[in-house]
């Protein structure tokens, strides 16, 4: 019966920051695997501390994995829809050009591959995806 399902649309919700717990790394490997298997990502949604995965202002030691860069590359390469929850993001210093200008912050920290938007995008994703999976 499952043979009929050729292509499944996933939304992956990331609740945790990289380096603190394994969850973001698990989410990354899961996302890569589902794409390799021919499934689709409807949306990546970074929520709460998960927004830290989308910072472009990070430097890691050479023998460490730069998770933010890994996400950025994957999102760019696969042209994924990647959304960062606005209320989670701006209070954690994840700032895009619009927020930077609005609050006169003088800096942008959000990777250009992701966009800041509201929780409505998460609800939209629950409506339009076949599966929603959370990593936290």
């Amino acid at each position: 019966m499952y043979g009929a399902i050729l292509n499944v649309k996933f939304t992956v919700v990331v609740h945790s920051a990289p380096y603190s717990t394994q969850a973001a790394a698990s989410a990354y490997r899961f996302t890569k695997a589902l794409l390799e298997q021919g499934h689709d990502v409807y949306r990546l949604f970074f929520f709460g501390d998960g927004v830290h995965n989308t910072s472009k202002l990070t430097v890691v030691a050479q023998d460490d994995t730069n998770w933010q860069q890994q996400w950025d590359k994957l999102i760019e390469l696969q042209k994924l829809d990647s959304v960062v929850c606005v209320t989670s993001a701006i209070k954690r210093g994840i700032i895009d050009e619009a927020e930077s200008a609005r609050h006169e912050l003088g800096a942008v920290s959000l990777s250009s591959s992701s966009e800041i938007s509201g929780l409505g995008q998460l609800i939209d994703a629950t409506i339009n995806s076949d599966r929603v999976i959370n990593f936290g």
Partner: peptide
Amino acid sequence: NTQGFVDLCVQ
């Protein structure tokens, strides 16, 4: 493995 994880989600 992680591919199997994806399969379980699909199933």
